[in-house]
Design a protein around this nucleic acid. Sequence first.
DNA 1: TGACGCATACCGTCCGGTAGGTAAGTTTCC
DNA 2: GGAAACTTACCTACCGGACGGTATGCGTCA
Lengths: 216, 216
Amino acid sequence: MKPRQLPDRGTGEPARRPVRPPLGEREGQIYVAASRLFIQKGFAGTSMSDIAEAVKITKAGLYHFVDSKEELLFTISQFGMDRLDEQVIAPAAAIADPLERLEAILKAHVQNAGRASREDGNPLTIVVDEPGGLTPEHRKVIEGRKRAYLDLLRGTLGELEVQGRLTEGVDVTAAAFAAIGAIMWIGRWWRPDGRLSLEETAEQVAAVLLNGVLRR
Amino acid sequence: MKPRQLPDRGTGEPARRPVRPPLGEREGQIYVAASRLFIQKGFAGTSMSDIAEAVKITKAGLYHFVDSKEELLFTISQFGMDRLDEQVIAPAAAIADPLERLEAILKAHVQNAGRASREDGNPLTIVVDEPGGLTPEHRKVIEGRKRAYLDLLRGTLGELEVQGRLTEGVDVTAAAFAAIGAIMWIGRWWRPDGRLSLEETAEQVAAVLLNGVLRR
DNA sequence: TGACGCATACCGTCCGGTAGGTAAGTTTCC
DNA sequence: GGAAACTTACCTACCGGACGGTATGCGTCA
């Protein structure tokens, strides 16, 4: 993915007509840039000036669009969970068979985890790494949504256990956390220019996890 | 915890005799406290005043023992890798059979990951979460040591693959990262007062990962 | 003529780090 | 043995700069 250049408003050129961005585009740039920076340098390690610079605006200009640094973090966190909801949770929740559902959850989540790796900005990384930057109220909201996802995964494993389709002795909670850990880790090592494609990675990690829990 | 008053060196009192702490104790307190704070609030989110307050000293007093904030981070990172070396890498490297070695790596690493969870200070969490706080030179050192561990794990899986003891089609690199991810995640959810003991957790996670890759 | 989309200039606070001091303990040397 | 010289373990007070955030103004467009 080549880095898209922001429109040049520099001097010297014959007064290039600055294309007024359509409504909301500037906000989008801000949230994308903030997301990327939060992932790269952490929430506390990123200053509002950093974000402003990244979108070629002054800090005061940035504050025209956002209320506070914490609001930025919360909005990004919500966005990350929204994407998890629509890409992973909602499609999976519609599947009746728990084995099919488990496969769907794992593969979709791996795809989501990899789709935006560390260089780009996958907001889900922020959700798991930066709860401390949120106010207690906002943190509760995010933790609740994370809990809902964990419950889906744990519940699906629980159904499989009841049906006797899990390997003897596997603890459902430990297995669920192992899966989430393996998946969240992908964003830290997978690179789009690496040997494995995202689809292959999704297959591989999902296969290891499925083999790890399913009776054969 | 009641706030212990610093010995009053003001006028009037008959010169209270301060007990000299044994050599190195203060440094130990500082590194433990810094470790805990870096994990709880992140490196950038922790100020030197926070650390000083945690060990009941002034900031200038703290700087009597440490050179800089970055040196603190590097020392803690090295300490974390030292523990990984002695508890996981060295014992495992002495095992000839790759399957036994793999089991030893996974179980020892899980124990290490859980032994000090988020509230307490497992320096390994800092190693993986805060490379950005290090100078390029120090970062290279730490990344090199991390790479050595990955190579051990990947190499062990590779031996098993050559021996035909892995499930058909498992990619060694993806499997190694899946294992590390699942293990590192433990520090984020396992609690000493939870339902699963650390030993049970180690067994569970190691079992899922071993089942996930081994041919049966 | 507003409303929008910014910029200039600034605020108080906190940051990492330092200058310089002091009380007590330790070593050196007569 | 005892004084002098030095070291250790801190302290108070402060520095320049960066931080999150704001008051105010001004050009541009519908």
